[in-house]
Design a protein around this nucleic acid. Structure first.
Length: 816
RNA sequence: GCCCGGGUGGCGGAAUUGGUAGACGCAGCGGACUUAAAAUCCGCUUUCCGAAAGGAAGUGCCGGUUCGAGUCCGGCCCCGGGCACCA
């Protein structure tokens, strides 16, 4: 194959070999170190996009690199197959969601195969298959029995025209995407998983996860949001139950000048009965979507309820307000407000003429005017009676003690994290295995009746779930009492499927259990790669599910992913590439034109993996040109005859320099891929080495030997990134055994030694000269050579040398 | 609004532990080869001054620490991601 580079032929040759030899199909081998390499599985939209190519290529580089390190590597692939796009397609084209999804899976599998990823396709999973989702239904019923799932009312976006629940994505500027009607918040009963039962464990374990990026751990810590505070009861005259609030600032208690409750709070509802203005305000509060970003950014509004609570320390009246920024589903649905020492309360008080009282003073004694500016720092208590002069900690303890002694509250740990609502009022998802009986309430479907199979041949109108129109689905009998009963028609949030698929790849065919002993061999995942947009939800739910499976006795593993790489988005025109925005680039065209290797190389070279990659059509050309140069360099070298054995003693300086470059590059690329995840600089280093090879004539025995060594190194080290061309070039270099079975190259330390090194000379921190010194020169020698330099003399002449800093191997800085 | 990132030539980016700013590539310019074009190869390419040697400025903005700051600290600005029903 000594002609021009033809990617289609090269890539078919390599892929045929891997398929024929079943290179990537792996079983369990306890004698070898395993390496489980996984990518967040794709939604089968039907077309591969650049974000897919990026993440799959990153993962494939890991898989192939660790295989060359001698590890037993598993890299599976599957489909996150439930979700809204299938329903949208069904509405638009009249195709049942199942049919559309299976077709897409077939199409995308072919596209993936064309890219040459090292997948074990025998383990493929599709989450919409009953063999898969039966096990999450099973786990749900186990969680039900343990009290880890429960039902409660929760807010959804309600489209009053289409009479249906909308996803946040389906709400555009507060209106339903199809009806254009103003969306309302409405409460309906939904199933929840008690992730908060694991909040502490999920938080604490983050401190012991060195393989995760700090940013992701920080985001998860803040999301869980553990806080230590105090619960306080305020009596409301005429009410039986006190109004309980939670605060992390009990030291500001004496500064409370009003309280606020949510629109859905019983006190507000009661007040609305006799006051039409309040009723109207409450109605207005529910006319918005349920997204937190909407609630947090909308104008803070409130209205006095005309009643007061009693301050628990002073006995003074504290007026009650209803406000749109207090959420019923969050804590107790009521907050105490301290305008002097809370930003939002201060602004609200200013707007509504509510008194602002200073009860904290700066610890350093600075005078402040609380009417002019809010003071939110911790400080010393003032205007607080017996608590005056106390610090934050002292006041926290004194006030918490007081409430504990009087039985009116006390220390509490609070989490921002809320339980996971898993109910979706949608068709294309896994049925929630619950049966409602008039006598027995909600009863989980018995294990021997699982799975509850989702009917796949349905008429799909888009308004409401077809399951609700299918008596043959929902009509059943109660498993407990045998009376006619009704099956749950809601389905699971698709995050449920993606919270445990990583473990199922170990035993995808197990019909006896959710996981079997093969999972003990392969889990946890050693390297997990996926989009940074999943940094919180998917990764936190997976960490939760792993623990639920552990506590169910299915595994000993607590943390599902040992090392995590969150790859940045592929952007175009400054925004995430997405079908919705219509700014996608089709990888298929590029592959047809340049081959998979060029596309893989470009994705790895264009940006560091964790950063956003701004797409540009130019630059792909450059990657293709490099592969052609690479091809020609190897083919021409191989064509010019046999290579003499390398004899390092006979090398001239130029040849030694190339050898040094070769082994420096082996060291650099090993570190770049193996430790730094810095694939772009690994490619750059390989390019530099190839540029250096092309400068040598490749004629003498010594030339040919060092060129051969360098080319072998480049072929081996680029093979994780561009595996097809390297497969063929390895044969060109005269090897019988295929490249896929080769080990990663080693650094020859002796090749790195150099006689002389370059040192930079600065005067007052400004670069003035570069000098060449013997590699073993000591400080005095380096210093005297530096001072002797002509240009350095120009800048130090006539001045006293005050100080000389010598950084060995790097620079000299002369301070005058 | 809150949480997490990012900001370096015309462009993507490099600089790994505070020590040569701009590696590698794209685009551009000049040259070789060619009847010509494409492809390929060679050279130049941060800005300003200078024939050159060399000098000055320079990593979003303002300030600080240091012999030395893209890197550390304080305060801002802009862009991207997430915010619990997009996946």
């Amino acid at each position: 194959m000594s002609s021009a580079y033809q990617p289609d032929i090269v890539e078919k040759t390599a892929q045929d070999h891997w398929a024929d030899a079943r290179c990537f199909e792996v079983g369990e081998d306890p004698t070898r170190e395993k390496f489980y390499c996984l990518t967040m599985f794709p939604y089968p939209s039907g077309k591969l996009h650049m974000g897919h190519v990026r993440v799959f290529t990153i993962s494939d580089v890991f898989a192939r690199f660790h295989r060359m390190q001698g590890k037993h590597v598993l890299q599976p692939m599957g489909w996150d197959a439930f979700g809204m796009p299938a329903e949208n397609a069904a509405i638009q084209r009249g195709v049942p969601p199942a049919q559309w999804t299976y077709k897409n899976i077939d199409d995308m599998r072919e596209q993936l195969k064309r890219l040459g990823y090292a997948y074990d396709w025998t383990r493929e999973i599709a989450t919409c298959r009953p063999e898969y989702y039966r096990w999450e239904q099973w786990l749900f019923t186990r969680m039900f029995k343990k009290g880890l799932v429960y039902r409660k009312n929760s807010v959804v976006n309600w489209d009053p025209v289409d009479q249906t629940v909308l996803a946040n994505e389906q709400v555009i500027d507060g209106r339903g995407w199809r009806s254009d009607a103003l969306v309302e918040r409405r409460e309906i009963p939904q199933w929840f998983m008690k992730i908060t039962a694991y909040a502490d464990e999920l938080l604490e374990q983050l401190d012991d996860m060195p393989g995760w990026p700090e940013s992701v751990k920080t985001m998860q810590r803040n999301w869980i949001g553990r806080s230590e505070g105090v619960e306080l009861a305020f009596d409301v005259p005429g009410e039986n139950d006190p109004l309980t609030v939670y605060t992390t600032r009990p030291d500001t208690l004496m500064g409370v000048t009003y309280m606020a409750v949510a629109a859905e709070h019983p006190l507000a509802t009661r007040a609305a009965e006799s006051n039409p203005q309040i009723a109207a305000f409450i109605k207005e509060c529910t006319t918005s979507d349920a997204a937190e970003a909407t609630l947090e950014t909308m104008e803070k509004k409130g209205m006095p309820l005309g009643i007061s609570a009693t301050h628990p320390l002073t006995g003074e009246d504290v007026p009650l307000w209803v406000a749109n920024f207090v959420l019923m589903s969050y804590g107790t649905g009521a907050v105490m407000a301290v305008p002097g020492h809370d930003e939002r309360d201060w602004e609200f008080a200013k707007k509504h003429g509510i008194p602002i009282k200073q009860v904290i003073a700066p610890a350093d004694g600075t005078e402040i005017d609380i009417q002019e500016a809010v003071f939110t720092d911790r400080g010393v208590l003032v205007n607080s009676g017996e608590y005056d002069g106390l610090s934050f900690d002292e006041a926290f303890d004194a006030i918490a003690d007081h409430f504990e002694k009087t039985g009116r509250g006390g220390r509490t740990i609070n989490y921002r994290l809320r339980d996971w609502g898993v109910s979706r009022q949608r068709y294309w998802g896994a049925p929630i295995p619950i049966i409602y009986c008039d006598d027995c309430d909600a009863v989980p479907v018995p294990e021997n009746q699982l799975p509850v199979v989702l009917p796949e041949n349905v008429e799909f109108t888009g308004v409401g779930s077809p399951l609700r129109e299918m008596p043959e689905f929902y009509e059943t009998v109660c498993p407990q009492c045998g009376k006619p009963a009704r099956r749950e028609t809601d389905t699971f949030d698709t995050f449920v499927e993606s919270s445990w698929y990583f473990a199922r790849y170990a035993c995808p065919d197990s019909s006896e259990a959710m996981l079997d002993e093969r999972a003990a061999y392969w889990t946890p995942v050693d390297q997990y790669t996926g989009g940074v947009e999943h940094a919180i939800l998917h990764l936190l739910y997976s960490r939760f599910f792993q623990r639920v499976m552990r506590d169910e006795g299915l595994t000993d593993v607590s943390e599902p992913f040992t090392n995590l790489l969150t790859q940045g988005m592929v952007l175009k025109d400054g925004a995430k590439m997405s079908k919705a925005k219509g700014n996608t680039v089709d990888p298929q065209e590029l592959i047809a034109r340049y081959g998979a290797d060029t596309v893989r190389l470009f994705m790895m070279f264009a940006a560091p993996p964790e950063q956003a990659l701004e797409w540009s059509d130019e630059g792909v050309q450059g990657s293709f040109r490099f592969l052609k140069r690479f091809w020609n360099a190897v083919v021409e070298h191989a064509a010019s005859g046999p290579v003499a054995l390398l004899d390092v003693d006979l090398l001239n300086n130029e040849q030694k320099a190339l050898r040094r470059k070769t082994h420096q590059t082996i060291g650099k690329i090993s570190d770049d891929i193996g430790r730094r995840n810095s694939f772009n600089t690994a490619v750059a280093a390989a390019m530099e080495l190839l540029n250096a090879v092309n400068k040598l004539k490749d004629e003498s025995d010594g030339d040919r030997a060092v060129v051969h060594e360098a080319l072998e190194a480049v072929v081996l080290m680029l093979s994780p990134i561009v595996p097809h061309i390297c497969h063929v070039l390895w044969q060109e270099l005269g090897h019988e055994t295929p490249l896929i079975d080769q080990a990663w190259p080693d650094v020859d330390e002796s090749a790195l030694e150099a006689d002389r090194i370059e040192i930079v000379v600065q005067v007052n921190g400004k670069l003035r000269a570069r000098i060449s010194v013997p590699a073993d020169a000591d400080r005095e020698v380096i210093e005297s050579l530096a001072v002797a330099d002509d240009n350095v003399q120009r800048f130090i002449a006539g001045n006293d040398i005050r100080k000389v800093i010598v950084v060995p191997g790097r620079l000299v800085n002369i301070v005058v």
